[in-house]
Design a protein around this nucleic acid. Structure first.
Length: 258
DNA sequence: ATGACGTCCCTGGGACGA
């Protein structure tokens, strides 16, 4: 089964691209981020028309996450991360889908750093880590998929120099991500492409896509029971080059049937 | 470099993103 994550940067502006991607690649599960729409305006009819059941956690204007399941209905486990009751950003949704625990995650960008947005980013990463530990304790096959807004290693960006002052690449951001790996989670793309050079994001600006100036910030972290079943992990890179594309490309894992 | 580019909001420009 294939589980994908895709920061679509506005589900309304991107709807033709999303439906096209679902039709062409037929992921079993699709975790979406930055749907940028309220719960009331989520285009569920179009999603259902493509053959997917869905749950979503929307927010007017920005953020927002969803989980889609082909020919199935995700069973919601949790929406939002604990630890900050006053946090109203829609950035986390978790469900059981086709025998796998799946989370759709949109961690904060954190720029500019230093500053309150960067502090919020780091706190959010620690809140995610705490939830991940609870999922780990359940010993279920789990895939924590989403836009982590972290460039984990120097080989995960076209230019270390260009990104040096960015929140995505600060030592604190990397340390927070590495703590989850140290907890035992497997970075699926790294396990299949250890040498790096795999990008999931290309900025709209500065001619980034034509000159392949991208970096890797969309990640799928696997629990041991999921990592044991890992067959492949890849990026649907060509979708970044299409008309009215998102600035992210879909990223996915293929798991052996249980 | 208060830049670029794009989406959202609700109207001409601000908020936000990476």
């Amino acid at each position: 089964m294939r589980i994908a994550t895709f920061n679509i940067n506005g589900i309304k502006a991107r709807l033709p691209r999303l439906l096209e991607w679902l039709d062409e690649t037929r992921p079993d599960v699709a975790c979406l981020q930055e749907i940028k729409t309220s719960d009331e305006t989520f285009p569920i009819k179009d999603i259902e028309g493509a053959g997917y059941g869905a749950i979503w956690h929307g927010q007017k204007g920005f953020n927002g996450v969803a989980i889609l399941a082909r020919g199935d209905m995700p069973v919601e486990v949790r929406r939002g991360l604990e630890g900050e009751p006053e946090d109203e950003h829609s950035r986390y949704l978790e469900a059981d889908v086709k025998g796998v625990r799946v989370a759709s995650i949109y961690l904060p960008n954190g720029n500019p750093q230093p500053g309150p947005k960067f502090d919020y980013k780091l706190r959010s990463m620690e809140r995610l880590r705490r939830r991940a530990a609870e999922i780990w304790a359940d010993e279920v096959p789990a895939v924590l998929a989403g836009d982590y807004n972290v460039i984990p290693r120097d080989v995960d960006t076209f230019s270390v120099k260009a990104m040096a002052d960015d929140a995505l690449m600060q030592p604190e951001s990397r340390a927070a991500y590495r703590r989850m790996l140290n907890d035992g989670w497997t970075d699926a793309i790294v396990s299949r492409h250890p040498a790096g050079g795999v990008w999931t994001f290309w900025d709209y600006q500065a001619n980034s896509w034509p000159r392949d100036a991208g970096f890797r910030i969309d990640h799928l972290l696997l629990s041991p029971a999921a990592a044991d079943r890992l067959i492949d992990a890849q990026v649907d890179k060509d979708f970044r080059g299409r008309e009215k594309a998102s600035d992210h490309a879909p990223t996915w894992v293929e798991l052996r049937p249980a």
